[in-house]
């Protein structure tokens, strides 16, 4: 305190001068429009620079909140995007021809959920009963068979894929007419088995397996797999064939649901024939 008083008394002249000078400059700025505007402008410039640099520093602290806001906004905008909406009535491509009667109709759908690692794998499609998809229809990808529609809801359908313990696709050799069944042993999503091919058939590694068309679900001749291993187990009459799927089930995006227009007719006919057999 004494030091302070001593300092004040020693510098009294200077402090008094400063006081009066501050008053004078205050009067100057208060009463002179030109100096006032200059002063305000320059002080705005100074304060603006200060605020700017403070803002430069503090904006990093707010990044979390800003990110959150932006993410929320993104989610909102994404909800507005067309591909998050469901197209109720899709495109079904039908060609009317007088010589070739249309047997299969294809409607394109998109895979919105997929799995390959489970023992029983399903995929979900973005179209359902509103688009005319029914249980039991086939689903094919760009490179061949994907699976069979298991259940449908109004807007979605669940597809039992080839990668399922119960899946059994009727298949045949492309070069010959021997047919068997394609199954999945639940190990690797790229490899499966072909069963029920008799041992006397001549097989070669790399032979292609195609759909047989017997099941009335898929058209005939769709590529399914290639042969990667052939064994002749002792004790039965059939080959043990390892196959590699042509479809990459991990990379499914655009698939087609196949509607067999004549399926009912075929099944009905087969049924009546069998009933007739049993009646006899």
């Amino acid at each position: 305190m004494r030091n302070l008083l001593g300092f004040l008394s020693r510098n009294l002249f200077f402090i008094f001068f400063l006081l009066l000078e501050v008053i004078a400059i205050f009067l100057l700025i208060q009463n002179n429009r030109y100096q006032q505007s200059r002063f305000l402008n320059s002080s705005n410039f100074v304060s603006g620079r200060v605020y700017q640099s403070v803002n430069n520093a503090t904006k990093y602290l707010n990044l979390d909140i800003i990110n959150e806001d932006l993410a929320t906004e993104n989610a909102k905008l994404k909800a507005e995007l067309a591909n998050s909406k469901i197209q109720i009535f899709g495109n079904n491509y039908i060609i009317n021809d007088t010589i070739y009667h249309q047997q299969f109709e294809y409607s394109e759908t998109r895979v919105i959920n997929n799995s390959v690692t489970k023992a029983n794998n399903y995929i979900t499609l973005d179209k359902g009963s509103f688009n005319g998809i029914k249980e039991g229809m086939g689903v094919i990808g760009p490179k061949g068979v994907v699976g069979i529609v298991k259940t449908v809801s109004p807007h979605f359908s669940s597809v039992l894929t080839v990668l399922h313990s119960q899946s059994k696709i009727s298949a045949k050799l492309k070069s010959q007419n021997y047919y068997g069944s394609m199954i999945w042993d639940g190990k690797d999503y790229q490899y499966g088995k072909l069963i029920n091919i008799p041992k006397h058939v001549k097989l070669f590694l790399g032979d292609t397996i195609v759909s047989s068309g017997f099941s009335a679900i898929f058209p005939k001749g769709l590529d399914l797999a290639t042969i990667t291993g052939i064994e002749k187990p002792s004790g039965n009459n059939f080959y043990d064939i390892d196959i590699k799927f042509i479809n990459d089930f991990k990379n499914l995006e655009q698939v087609y649901v196949v509607k067999n227009v004549l399926k009912e007719e075929q099944l009905l006919l087969e049924q009546t024939t069998q009933e007739g057999d049993s009646d006899d």
């Binding site: 008094f16 009066l20 004078a24 100057l28």
Partner: peptide, 30 residues
């Protein structure tokens, strides 16, 4: 300082340049 302030204010009042001469004259007196 007080005299400088008084003189400066007087000049300023008449020439309507409030504070201008006062601050200059105060510095000179200082």
């Amino acid at each position: 300082l007080i005299l400088a302030f008084a003189l400066g204010i007087s000049i300023d009042v008449f020439s309507s340049t409030m504070g201008m001469h006062t601050s200059a004259l105060l510095l000179m007196a200082f």
